[in-house]
Design a protein around this nucleic acid. Structure first.
Length: 457
RNA sequence: GGAUAGGUGGCAGAGAGGUCAUGCGUGGGACUGCAGAUCCCAUUUACUAGGGUUCAAAUCCCUACCUAUCCUCCA
C-alpha cells in the first residue's frame, strides 16, 4: 500500500524489512486519567490500519507502549492521596476497557515503561559511552548537537528552535534544547537505581528501550498523533540512531491529525474534551468509529453535535443497505449489482494512503444502488454486496450485526405478528397500544411497504 | 522568527490535467389507517487572488494573501 511518510514528506509504497511481516509501533497513552475522543481517534486509526495490513496478507506485530510513570502520574497521585502505582494500574485497566468497548483489538503487546528499566539504563549507558549524553547535577541529558540528523523528521533546524519560549530551561544543560534521559531523584518521588544515582527515566527513552527489546534498533512503521512529531519522535530517532548508527529508527512514520472542538484542539489541559467513556454512553462503538474514520486521517477533524449527527445518518444508510442485502441473500430476483466493481474501488482507496473517507463514499454509492433496486437483489449480487460490506467492517468496524436470529428477536417477531393481526382487522387502537408498549421497552417499530422492521435502542 | 499542512458549492469534506465523489441541509415526490422511518429526483459552469505552462488546470509552476498546527506535557 501507499502511505504518506512524514519522514520523506511523500507518498510511499510500504515495503517491509522482512518479507510479509510488518512491525508497527504506536505511542500509547500516559495512564493518569481516562482517554478522550481525540486520543481514541489515533488508536482507532492504527487499529484499522493494522487490520488492513493483516487483511492484505501481512503478518503484523503491533506494539504499543504505556507510560506508567510520569510527572502527571505523580501529580494525580499527590492530589488524590493514592500511591502512583495504583493510579497507573487503575487507568491502564480503564484504557483497556475503553479499547475493548471501541473494538480496538489488534495490539499484540502493551508494554509498560517501568518494566523496561534494564533496557532504559542500557540505552543511556551506551549513549554515554558514545559521547551522545552527559551527566549534570540533576540528570543525564542527550546532547543534540552531537547527532547530525537532529530534526530530520520535523524539518526543524536546531538553531531556529526557540527553546523555553514558555518554560525556563535548565541552566545546567549544554544546549537548551537538550532533552533529559534520566531524572535524578527528588524528595517524595519514586526512583530506580542507576549508574548515575537513583532517579527515573525521561519520557523519550522509554519508547526506544521498548522498541529495541521487541524489534531491535530498526523496524517498519512508527505511528502516533501529529503532536508527537516534535520533539518526541525526533528525540526517539536521535537516541536510537546515535546508538545503532543505522539510517533509520523506523522506515515509515505515520501521524494522525487532531480532533478539534470548535477552533481548538481537544485537550485535557484546555478542558474542552469529551471522554471516550462518556461518548460510549451516548453513541455506539460503530458510530464513534465511523465518525473518526470519516475523514482524512492526517487532517484535523472537527467535532460538533451537528457533524456527528450527519455522520450517524450516513452510517444509517450503509447499515440499512447491509441489512437489506442480508435479508435478500437467499432470494432469486432479477436485479444485479456490480459488486466486484465496488470492492475493487474500496481496496484501491485503502491502498491509496488509507483513504477511509472515500471507502465510505463508495459504500454509500453501493447502498444507493441497492435501494434503487428496492433491495430485490439477485442471490449472487446480495452475497457480493454482503462480502463487500463485511470486508470493510472487518477492517474499520462500523457495522452492527442483525439480531433477528436471537431469542429476543424471535419473541419480538412473535409480538409483531400479533400486532399485524390487529392491523389486518383494522383494530388500530390495539395495534397502536402494542407499538407503544414495545417502544416503551426500547424497541423501535417502523412500518413500510415490505413489512414491519424493528430495532432495539 | 523557524517548521509542517492547508485554502473546493449553504455546511462538512474526497479528488490531483480532460466524465464536477459522498453525507448533511434545502426543494419536490413516493410509500402509509395514523405516526415514524425509509426511498427516489433535484439542488451540474464549487474550486483564495493574480500571473504562467498546456489543445486542456481545482489539479503542474511562480507570486501574493489567508488559515491551522508544532517549536511547552499532550494522541
Amino acid at each position: 500500500m501507499n502511505i504518506y511518510n512524514t519522514l520523506t514528506r511523500r507518498l510511499e509504497e510500504i515495503v517491509p524489512m522482512k518479507r510479509g511481516r510488518i512491525r508497527l509501533f504506536v505511542c500509547g497513552p500516559t495512564v493518569f486519567n481516562f482517554i478522550h475522543l481525540g486520543n481514541a481517534r489515533t488508536f482507532v486509526l492504527f487499529d484499522s490500519l493494522a487490520k488492513y495490513l493483516t487483511a492484505s496478507g501481512y503478518e503484523v506485530f503491533y506494539l504499543q507502549n504505556i507510560t506508567d510513570i510520569d510527572d502527571k502520574t505523580l501529580k494525580v497521585a499527590a492530589q488524590t492521596g493514592v500511591p502512583w502505582q495504583d493510579v497507573s494500574s487503575r487507568f491502564f485497566e480503564e484504557y483497556l476497557r475503553d479499547m475493548k468497548a471501541l473494538g480496538v483489538d489488534s495490539v499484540n503487546v502493551y508494554a509498560k515503561a517501568t518494566l523496561y528499566m534494564d533496557e532504559i539504563r542500557s540505552q543511556i549507558r551506551r549513549l554515554m559511552n558514545r559521547g551522545y549524553a552527559y551527566e549534570t547535577q540533576d540528570g543525564v541529558y542527550f546532547h543534540v548537537e552531537k547527532f547530525r540528523d537532529m530534526g530530520e523528521l520535523s524539518g526543524q533546524k536546531l538553531d531556529k528552535v526557540v527553546p523555553g519560549s514558555r518554560v525556563v530551561p535548565s541552566e545546567q544543560k549544554i544546549n537548551p534544547v537538550d532533552f533529559v534521559l534520566w531524572k535524578k531523584h527528588k524528595a517524595g518521588e519514586p526512583s530506580w537505581d542507576s549508574p548515575w544515582g537513583p532517579g527515573r527515566p525521561g519520557w523519550h527513552i522509554e519508547d526506544t528501550a521498548i522498541t529495541e527489546s521487541f524489534f531491535g534498533s530498526m523496524y517498519d512503521i512508527h505511528g502516533g498523533g501529529k503532536d508527537l512529531v516534535f520533539p518526541h519522535h525526533e528525540a526517539e530517532i536521535g537516541q536510537m540512531r546515535a546508538i545503532s548508527g543505522k539510517k533509520h529508527l523506523a522506515r515509515y512514520w505515520i501521524h494522525g491529525g487532531y480532533l478539534n472542538m470548535g477552533a481548538d484542539k481537544m485537550s485535557k489541559s484546555a478542558g474542552n474534551f469529551i471522554m471516550l467513556r462518556e461518548a460510549l454512553k451516548k453513541y455506539t462503538r460503530q458510530q464513534i468509529r465511523f465518525f473518526l474514520l470519516n475523514a482524512n486521517y492526517a487532517s484535523d477533524l472537527l467535532y460538533t453535535e451537528e457533524l456527528f449527527k450527519a455522520s450517524c445518518e450516513a452510517l444509517d444508510r450503509i447499515q440499512h443497505a447491509y441489512d437489506m442485502a442480508l435479508e435478500n441473500v437467499d432470494r432469486r430476483e432479477s436485479n444485479t449489482l456490480s459488486t466486484g466493481y465496488y470492492l475493487s474501488r474500496i481496496k484501491g482507496h485503502l491502498d491509496n494512503n488509507f483513504d477511509t473517507r472515500s471507502v465510505f463514499a463508495t459504500l454509500l454509492e453501493m447502498s444507493s444502488e441497492i435501494f434503487r433496486t428496492g433491495g430485490r437483489l439477485q442471490g449472487d449480487s446480495a452475497s457480493g454486496a454482503i462480502e463487500t460490506f463485511q470486508y470493510v467492517d472487518n477492517i474499520l468496524g462500523i457495522l452492527a450485526q442483525g439480531s433477528a436470529a436471537s431469542d429476543t428477536g424471535r419473541i419480538i417477531e412473535g409480538i409483531l405478528r400479533l400486532r399485524e393481526e390487529f392491523r389486518r382487522r383494522k383494530d388500530f387502537s390495539t395495534s397502536d397500544m402494542i407499538r407503544r408498549i414495545l417502544e416503551d421497552s426500547g424497541v423501535r417499530i417502523e412500518d413500510d411497504a415490505s413489512g414491519t422492521k424493528w430495532k432495539i435502542g
